[in-house]
Design a protein around this nucleic acid. Structure first.
Length: 732
DNA sequence: CCTTTATTTTTTTTT
DNA sequence: AAAATAAAGG
């Protein structure tokens, strides 16, 4: 065995981590310090030096992108067979486990995965049947609450309302939702993990089996694990497994999803005799970029403490561009990319990162105009498009007739005379008899219990599906998909819609066929000696669609500018990075500005964004930005001033100002116009409101009928109101 | 029952 | 501004 080949290209700290003796290890790895490399080399070390079989190694990450990257690197660098090795996301691995052990997990053999949208619909349905007022109790909030409970490992049965009305209501929803999922054989994202965790605890022999099997467990992005994932890891590791976790507290950006930074400290305590390694040398960025990142993150309290350094050259200063508006911002970015591209850089070395997906549109238009190819990750994912979901719902109905979600989605698309009224009848009957919609429809039809027209339409629908199912029995996946799209009239339906929109939909549908063609179930993690997993290729494809949402659209190989949110950029790097929309209210986001804890998370997100850049970093903000229909005049992001001034050079249209400009140059103060245009209101104005009583206007956004004002009411708190709706009476 | 039009709501980040 | 939903018209 050649040990040097494994340790060859590593620095001292990395080498120590990679070659550490078996036992638990915590690797604190700063951005760009080569943590993925440490992980892959560690796997090589475990297999080649420690002699562990690939079957006994598990490597977990969070995102599909990171998992793919890791798989790729292991394959390429180590020349190791990946089959049998558990490399994947928490959710992906849990899914596989549940497919293999559906009986032990008390699941339907062909259980379906509920994606975010399905889940929302389901909760909404449940709330309707519980007669809970949607206005008072938003379904989104309930979804959020339920997921938060599951992320903490809590079932409805574990929760006590303690007389809290809010909890009482949510709990009712949670219980009913649990039941509905159980009945329908449905599993949401959090449920995958929770169910696997419970199954391991309930089935000691199964647990023992896996504990024996996994000699080594490696976890990437450990700072993003939530309570449930942590518990999951602990159970699986047992007493015999060697666990190595890699994380960076400064890059923890998923607190809103239940991630607990504290897990890093807990790990030290819970996993005895942990050796700790720190990777502090950065190999990615210039000294300037790194200093900017360090300067920013220092403003956070509560850090484990770590300072990154680099041997790299100073590099160029950070460009700061104050755009007029969002269109000017996009123009600036496009121009810079064009320059750089003409200078010989690959487009794919340029990334535009933003806080929220909605920002991508304007940037996209700019690139489109300049005819620069680009690729957007996230946002409207491929499998989330309406036409794709409809086609998938047909497939799902073929696979399991009792899927109510699929039934409802599909029953009247394209229109076949089964409207709200008929569906209402089906739904009522189904609820009464505890049947699925499909069963209800079948029974009602058999008894001629529906009004004539509906009767005929429903019967026709049922038999169409059944015949289709029979006739496609022997088809392979792509032909099946194609046939379904064709036979169910989706093609002609969207052809009729016409226009660019319809055209795009048709293209997406044929894209779905090619996705089916290139789908390879063997790509998934396989089990060693476990029985062949009983799952049809169709079900595997559907699960894949839910689990990976497929953000790969368009041509993967073409050289293109990369666009994504800062969240999805984690783990990636580019030569040139643009952070767009650096404005208070956008980034840090409005919703996160008030709470210190959440503000710090936003700052960490900014840190992640900055550290994606290798050579050149641009920050841009717009003095005026049109968002959700009205204009906003936001201040430049507070994060800009967290960066040491001497590292920044301000760029104003075509000229470069040498003086440090942050403090002195402010945009024209349009926003301090005190009167709200088109109304009789102005800042500081005392007003009267029919319900809330007396108050003072603190702020506003938008103008005329669109204007919203923020009012501090006496004793009623601070509220945002539509000026046109609120009927505020000026006082004094 | 279907289609068109008006109204209302929504707008963070993801598996 | 766009999308989802409700109401009206055919």
């Amino acid at each position: 065995m050649d040990v040097t080949a494994i340790l060859d290209q590593l620095n001292e700290a990395q080498r120590e981590a990679v070659s550490s003796p078996l036992g638990h290890a915590l690797v604190l790895a700063g951005a760009g310090s080569g943590k993925t490399r440490v992980l892959t080399q560690r796997i090589a070390w475990l297999s080649e030096v420690e002699g562990l079989s690939p079957f006994s190694i598990m490597a977990v990450t969070f995102t599909n992108k990171a998992a793919a990257e890791m798989r790729h690197r292991i394959e390429a660098q180590l020349n190791m067979p990946l089959r049998g090795m558990w490399v994947g996301t928490f959710h992906g691995l849990a899914h596989r486990f549940l497919r293999a052990h559906w009986q032990d997990a008390n699941l339907d053999q062909n259980f379906q995965i509920l994606d975010a949208d399905d889940q929302l619909r389901m909760v909404r349905r449940v709330m309707v049947s519980l007669d809970i007022d949607e206005k008072k109790w938003p379904p989104r909030q309930s979804v959020w609450w339920i997921n938060a409970q599951k992320d903490d490992g809590l079932r409805a049965a574990h929760i006590h309302d303690q007389g809290d009305v809010f909890v009482q209501v949510q709990l009712r929803v949670y219980r009913a939702y649990e039941e509905a999922c159980e009945r329908g054989g449905l599993v949401d994202f959090a449920e995958l993990l929770l169910r696997m965790h419970e199954t391991l605890l309930n089935r000691p022999e199964l647990l023992a089996h896996y504990q024996r099997r996994f000699k080594a467990i490696l976890v990437d992005e450990f700072q993003d694990t939530n309570a449930l994932q942590y518990a999951w890891l602990r159970v699986l590791a047992g007493n015999s497994s060697h666990v190595m976790v890699v994380g960076d507290d400064d890059q923890s950006i998923y607190g809103w999803r239940g991630a607990k930074i504290e897990n890093i400290q807990r790990f030290e305590k819970d996993f005895k005799a942990t050796s700790i390694f720190r990777l502090e040398q950065n190999y990615r960025s210039t000294a300037t970029i790194l200093q900017a990142a360090n300067g920013l993150i220092e403003k956070n309290a509560d850090r484990l403490g770590k300072s990154l350094w680099t041997a790299d050259a100073e590099g160029e200063r950070i460009g700061l561009y104050a755009a007029y508006n969002e269109i000017d911002e996009s123009r600036f970015i496009v121009a810079r990319i064009q320059d750089s591209f003409n200078g010989g850089e690959a487009l794919s070395e340029h990334a535009i990162l933003y806080r929220s997906n909605a920002q991508s549109r304007v940037l996209e238009e700019g690139l489109l105009r300049a005819q620069i190819p680009y690729r957007i990750y996230g946002g409207q994912r491929f499998f989330e498009r309406a036409e794709i979901r409809t086609a998938l719902a047909y497939l799902r109905l073929l696979s399991s007739r009792d899927s109510d979600a699929a039934f409802e989605r599909v029953v009247n698309v394209p229109p076949r005379g089964i409207g709200d009224k008929s569906i209402g009848l089906l739904r009522d009957f189904a609820r009464e008899k505890q049947l699925s919609l499909w069963q209800a429809a079948t029974e009602l039809c058999a008894n001629d219990a529906l009004p004539g027209r509906a009767q005929r339409a429903v019967a026709a629908f049922l038999s169409t599906i059944d015949t289709l199912d029979e006739s496609t029995d022997q088809f392979d996946l792509p032909s099946l998909v194609e046939t379904v799209i064709d036979a169910m009239g989706l093609k002609s339906h969207y052809e009729k819609e016409g226009g660019e929109r319809g055209q795009a939909r048709l293209e997406n549908l044929s894209e779905l066929v090619s996705a089916a063609r290139s789908f390879d179930p063997d790509d998934q993690v396989m089990f060693e000696e476990d029985s062949e997993i009983e799952i049809s290729i169709l079900d595997a494809f559907l699960a894949h669609a839910a689990l990976e949402a497929g953000d790969a659209q368009g041509d993967r190989t073409q050289d293109a500018v990369q666009m994504m949110t800062m969240h999805s950029a984690k783990g990636l790097e580019f030569k040139t990075v643009f952070l767009a929309g650096m404005e208070d209210g956008l980034f840090p986001h409005q919703m996160s500005m008030d709470e210190p804890g959440r503000l710090e998370e936003e700052r960490r997100l900014c840190y992640v964004g900055i550290t994606r850049a290798r050579q050149k970093l641009y920050l841009t903000y717009a003095e005026s930005r049109r968002l959700n229909g009205s204009d906003h005049y936001n201040r430049p992001s507070r994060f800009i001033s967290d960066i040491p001034r001497e590292l920044v050079e301000e760029i104003r249209a075509h000229e470069v100002l040498v003086r440090p400009a942050l403090s002195t140059s402010r945009p024209p103060k349009v926003r301090f116009k005190t009167e709200v245009e088109g109304t009789q209101l102005k800042l500081g104005q005392k007003v009267n409101h029919a319900k809330f009583g007396e108050g003072v206007i603190l702020a506003y956004e938008g103008t005329g009928p669109q204007a919203r004002v923020q009012v501090a009411f006496d004793g009623q708190g601070i509220k945002w109101l539509m000026a046109a709706m609120a009927k505020l009476e000026p006082k004094e």
